[in-house]
Simulated scan of single mutants.
Amino acid sequence: MLQRVAQQYGNITSMLVTLDKHNKSYNFIASAFACGTAGYFLTSAHTIKPHDNLGIMISREINTFQTTKAESLEGFAVTLVGFDPINDVALLKANEKLDFNMPSPSAFLGDETAIKVGTSIGYLGYPYGSQGLETVKISSSIISSKILTSNGTRALQLDSSVNDGNSGGPLIDIASGKIIGIITGRYSPSGPTPVAFIGGVPLGQDSNISYAVGISYAVDLMKDEGIYV
């Protein structure tokens, strides 16, 4: 079942980057994934600044052996067309015409409100992409809790340690094969500031509790853009 998820979403999960003014070099910032045939992508709002020069680097073929640092990637500039910082979702559109072989969004985007605690899930992204690991990774976990954030946002708690760089990637219900959320990050017992560093590695920020926001907030942005059918 997890294999099916990997084959279905591995090649549409991409790197979100900032581009230099000539679009010749990039810096990794987060994960993202295609959500429609016309070059639209979803990611986490907290990873970007609205005036960043943003780009998407398309995933390489997941079933072949690849170097961890990509020697060449297909990339293109994108524009921010939907931004919801309260619920931590953002919608991007490619500046050039793209044609992904994907079904309509309503066929592969699910409903987080119907998911039960204990559901097996998979998630994809580019953990430690900022440190040169430019290969998509699939992981598995379960929904350990359903929570409301201080803003009232519906979020799914995962029994898993989501790594830096996974934010913005899709969360998938393995049974249905539908995307039910967007990975946002990991709970840090010490808060945003590490308690100490050893060899440059921050301490006090690891846990096996991570979060994803419900996909319905992304669907709202897609409806505003007129692309949810």
Rank of each mutant, 00 (worst) to 15 (best):
Y40K: 03
I138S: 09
F197I: 08
S31L: 00
I147L: 11
I179F: 03
L221V: 02
T113I: 12
N23M: 04
I180W: 09
N101W: 09
A34D: 04
I48N: 00
G82E: 04
I198A: 13
L148G: 13
R60Y: 01
L54A: 00
N166E: 08
F28C: 05
D164W: 11
T13W: 10
K178P: 01
S14D: 13
S141L: 03
Y187R: 10
L42P: 00
G200W: 12
A70S: 11
K116Q: 08
L19I: 04
E225K: 05
G214S: 12
K146N: 12
V117L: 11
F108W: 07
Y9E: 09
S106V: 10
L124D: 13
I172L: 12
F197K: 07
F83G: 00
L156N: 04
M102E: 03
S141I: 07
A77D: 02
E61M: 11
M1W: 12
L171Y: 09
D88Q: 06
Y9Q: 15
N63S: 14
L109W: 08
E74C: 00
P105H: 09
N163S: 07
K24G: 02
L73T: 09
Y26Q: 02
T67W: 08
T113A: 12
V213D: 05
I143Q: 00
A212G: 08
G204A: 06
F33L: 03
S130G: 13
I115G: 13
G75C: 01
V136D: 04
P192Q: 02
T119C: 14
V117G: 06
S106C: 05
F197S: 04
S44D: 08
G122R: 14
L54P: 08
I56D: 01
L221R: 03
L158Q: 14
F83N: 04
Y40C: 01
Y126A: 14
L148A: 14
I143S: 01
T18W: 00
A45I: 12
K24W: 00
S188K: 06
G152S: 12
I172K: 10
D206H: 10
D20F: 02
S140T: 07
G168P: 00
V213Y: 03
K49W: 03
N101V: 06
G36E: 04
F100S: 07
G191H: 07
A38Y: 08
R154K: 14
R4Q: 15
S140W: 03
A90C: 08
T113K: 05
I121P: 01
S139F: 15
L148K: 15
G214L: 14
L148V: 11
F108L: 03
F41G: 04
T37R: 08
L98W: 08
V195N: 14
A45F: 02
R154E: 05
T67Y: 14
K24V: 01
A45Q: 13
F108E: 06
T113N: 09
D224M: 08
N11M: 10
E71C: 11
R60H: 01
A107V: 13
L73G: 08
G168K: 09
S161Q: 15
N208R: 14
S210M: 09
I172P: 11
S104M: 06
Q3D: 15
I183D: 07
N11T: 03
